[in-house]
Design a protein around this nucleic acid. Structure first.
Length: 206
DNA sequence: CGAATGATCGGCT
DNA sequence: GCCGATCATTCGA
């Protein structure tokens, strides 16, 4: 089954889990960088108050969310960070999966150059703003067809899905204003993978 | 350690 | 004007 068909037919909450383990690759400025998706979040308008398209609100910004499955939705957060989403569902259904973290595979050195920070380790790509910067994604990559052969950004599903047992669900963060929707466990990450951001509600004792 | 803060922009009221 | 699907750094205990 083609990726587009999967993105069209499955529910966005399922897709957030299906996309775990998928590879995202960018070809920009003659540089190839790629990584495995380790953490995702589902955004499901119109009922989801955390979504920009809550209540099917259409503005210049949210219009991209209403595009057909396989379109990219990149938008600027806090004036600094470009957050990368994959639009899912048929045209006029504003569902999307936010990519929150990846495990780097190709072009790690170039990612560090793009990130330009002192620290190292998992810090490279374990957050939505971080991975976008590491992969060179910015708002010029909004509303492009990820499934086109010409796209500088591409997605490929893993040969085998991550088993359900290996997926951890938790509440979404950063959208406290979204009231009860903020508690919906629509954030997914691969168990025992260190290339994820820590769940905010879990404490580790050591 | 944790808390506070600065960075810095565009969409919305 | 205000504030967000954030992050890196500094400050204080």
């Amino acid at each position: 089954m083609s990726l587009r068909k999967v993105l069209l037919s499955e529910d966005v909450v399922s897709l957030a889990q299906i996309l775990l383990g998928a590879t995202i690759t960018t070809h920009l400025d003659g540089i190839t960088t790629s990584g495995i998706i380790t953490e995702t979040e589902a955004y499901k308008a119109p009922d989801d108050k955390g979504s920009h398209a809550y209540g099917n609100k259409r503005t210049k910004r949210t219009e991209t969310l209403f595009a057909e499955a396989g379109t990219s939705y990149v938008y600027l957060c806090y004036g600094i960070h470009h957050l990368f989403n994959i639009v899912t569902g048929p045209k006029d259904v504003a569902h999307a999966v936010l990519i929150r973290a990846i495990e780097p595979s190709q072009g790690k050195d170039q990612m560090w150059v793009r990130r330009a920070i002192k620290s190292k380790g998992y810090n490279l790509t374990n957050g939505p703003g971080k991975l976008s910067k590491a992969l060179g994604i910015n708002k010029s990559h909004n509303a492009i067809d990820l499934l086109s052969i010409r796209s500088p950004i591409s997605i490929s599903l893993p040969k085998q899905h991550i088993p359900h047992k290996e997926i951890i669900a938790s509440p979404r963060v950063g959208i406290a204003y979204a009231a009860e929707c903020a508690h919906w466990p629509w954030r997914f990450r691969i168990k025992d993978n260190s290339w994820t951001s820590l769940p905010h509600d879990v404490k580790y004792d050591n």
